Computed example of a mutant assay.
Amino acid sequence: MLPLDVSLDVNLMTPAARAAFHRAKSDSKGRPGMIQEDRLRRNALSSQPLCFNLFGHLASDPASILPWIREIDDQASIVDDIRIEWAPSTGTFSGSAFDAFVEYTTGTGERGFVGVECKYHEDLKATLRKPAAQKFLEHTSSQWWRPDAASHLDKNGLRQLWFNQLLTQATIEIEAYDRAFGVVVACDEDQAARVATAKVQEQLVDTAGLSFHSIQSIVEAVDGHDDWRRTFSERYTDFSPISGLLPQNDPRRPATSKSSRG
């Protein structure tokens, strides 16, 4: 945690990330979701400032993220907008919002979006520990899910990703999109997030509707923004400065070559 009197521009790294915060704060009035300003200012490990520093920064240049969107939907032609902590104002039934929401248009004029759930240090099993409310079970009994999917998904560590996918499906219908994809974004080394994503994915009729993407792969796919790429990667995905504090089997430890071992 950073000091109590720290300014927003310490944890939000660029003017574009801070501009995205002000837009999200304005958009949040009357909508689901929650922007915690103290968390944004002070929590250096929280996924919410990370999301602003990644997707919020790129919101000033939506075209730069098109190469990554095309990895999800190769029909994408134009990225129209990137919003943070956004959901339709009514009709989603869950009260939650996407961490990031990327709208795009295909070459044939179809409207699509990618709804992002972003994780960094958070433990998926520590959130949403109570069994799901009936409304979530009812919305899982649809053309999107395999029979009896809810019984496989109503478990610690899976509920948050399950609920985010339900939000994706609700948004398709509320906003009349033609195409939509849910994405879980976390560090490449986050095996727990990868496994949880796969367990939710396997309960979908169309498994292409949900996928895991590493933070590193998104940063690498972005066009331009070289200075941002360097500083963002140093802050969030380069674990070499603390490698000596990590357990020997921790996947974040840099690989040691045979020559360096003598």
Rank of each mutant, 00 (worst) to 15 (best):
Q248M: 15
S64G: 12
K119R: 04
I35H: 02
T207N: 11
D206K: 09
R39K: 12
A44R: 10
S26E: 14
L153T: 02
Q191K: 10
L2T: 09
I218A: 03
T106I: 04
D61R: 15
Y177M: 02
V185E: 01
E173C: 13
A176G: 03
L66M: 10
R194C: 11
R229V: 04
Q203E: 14
I215L: 15
R18Q: 14
A176C: 05
D74P: 14
P147L: 07
S233Q: 09
S26Y: 08
H22P: 04
A133D: 12
F136A: 10
A176F: 01
P67C: 04
T106K: 04
V102R: 05
A59I: 06
F98R: 01
S233E: 05
R18F: 08
A150G: 06
G112K: 04
L137M: 06
V10K: 14
K130H: 12
S243I: 03
I215E: 07
L158W: 00
T171F: 00
L137I: 13
T108L: 07
H225P: 09
L158P: 00
Q75M: 12
D190K: 00
F212R: 06
N156G: 02
S7D: 15
Q75W: 07
R70D: 02
T127D: 09
L245K: 11
V185Y: 00
T90Y: 08
R70M: 03
F163A: 02
G209R: 13
E85D: 06
D250H: 05
A193C: 14
R235M: 04
T171R: 03
D5G: 15
R18I: 15
N156L: 02
E175T: 12
D178I: 03
G91L: 07
Q169A: 13
E103V: 07
F232R: 05
H152Y: 08
F93D: 12
S77C: 10
